[in-house]
């Protein structure tokens, strides 16, 4: 029993590290551009399918395909900002939401049409391999997910808190007109952040593919998952999303051990409502 809990904890935390990366992607875009990207999970799904396709057609290892996919999705994210999100800045919430929802529609249904609703698995040889530490067996894919998640969040942390670009991004998030008046090109900063956000989603898709599988419904699932993460941590907060992702990974994993899947899912949404009501702005986000 204890071993099962420990196993669930560690393995959940490992996936949670990757969830955190995905959640940070969404929260960064929201924090800086102030538009909720309902298509976040759809980008993740698109990357997962792309990775699967590269494996199926050309036998490229899913992790290797990430090296191509993540930068391409960064570019895609920058284009997404300039083409679709920037015109929506300052528009009504309904319009902003429906725009990103429409983008999600297009991506999700294209995947449905191209790949059908069948689950697509990458049959890499190491998918079933695991590392045993005493009685605890940790699947290699999860270890990799945890490691990559840790690296990605560290890199983003350094980028945001240790570089000039990070200062520009945070200043633009805090007070856009004043950031402009200090010589910061806030539109470029927002575009870069959107690129990073989408790249995070893509990284999530690539790294989680060997653990789960690609399916068209993955888009909506991960959009909701990302929302849960950022509401857990406070909307717009980097560290909140980090903690939220790990918590969610663990609860999901433990929940699956003790409840059936749909009860576990439902409970997370109940938690979501409770948090929204009682801690609507989380710990860190500042409202001017």
């Amino acid at each position: 029993m204890l071993v099962a809990i420990l196993q669930g904890l560690i393995s959940g935390a490992l996936v949670g590290g990757m969830y955190a990366t995905v959640g940070i992607g969404l929260t960064l875009v929201f924090g800086v551009v102030r538009i909720v990207n309902f298509a976040h999970g759809s980008f993740l799904m698109a990357a997962a399918y792309a990775s699967w396709l590269m494996y199926e057609r050309y036998g490229i290892d899913p992790y290797l395909s990430g090296l191509i996919l993540v930068p391409s999705f960064f570019v895609l994210g920058v284009a997404y900002y300039w083409g679709l999100m920037r015109p929506m800045v300052g528009k009504s919430l309904l319009a902003q939401s429906l725009l990103t929802i429409a983008v999600g529609y297009v991506i999700d249904n294209t995947a449905l049409g191209l790949f059908s609703s069948q689950m697509r698995v990458v049959a890499v040889p190491y998918a079933v391999a695991s590392l045993s530490i005493g009685p605890i067996a940790l699947p290699v894919t999860r270890l990799i997910a945890g490691g990559v998640g840790l690296c990605a969040t560290t890199i983003m942390y350094l980028l945001l808190w240790r570089t000039g670009m990070g200062i520009a991004v945070r200043a633009a998030a805090a007070d856009r007109p004043i950031a402009e008046a200090m010589g910061i090109n806030t539109h470029s900063a927002q575009a870069v952040v959107t690129g990073i956000g989408i790249a995070c989603a893509a990284l999530g898709g690539v790294v989680l593919l060997p653990i789960f599988a690609a399916s068209p419904s993955m888009g909506a699932d991960f959009t909701f998952l990302s929302f849960l993460i950022i509401v857990l941590g406070g909307m717009g907060s980097f560290f909140g999303a980090l903690v939220g992702g790990v918590i969610l990974g663990i609860t999901e994993n433990l929940g699956a051990t003790f409840f059936d899947g749909s009860t576990g899912h439902m409970l997370t949404f109940v938690l979501f409502v409770v948090l929204l009501v009682f801690r609507p702005y989380g710990v860190l986000v500042r409202r001017r």
């Binding site: 529609y105 449905l112 049409g113």
Partner: peptide
């Protein structure tokens, strides 16, 4: 094409919103 109706809805919705 399985997802075509909703793809079209999405593609129409984007310019409408914009």
């Amino acid at each position: 094409f399985a997802g075509a109706p909703l793809i079209i809805v999405g593609l129409v919705l984007i310019p409408v919103v914009l």
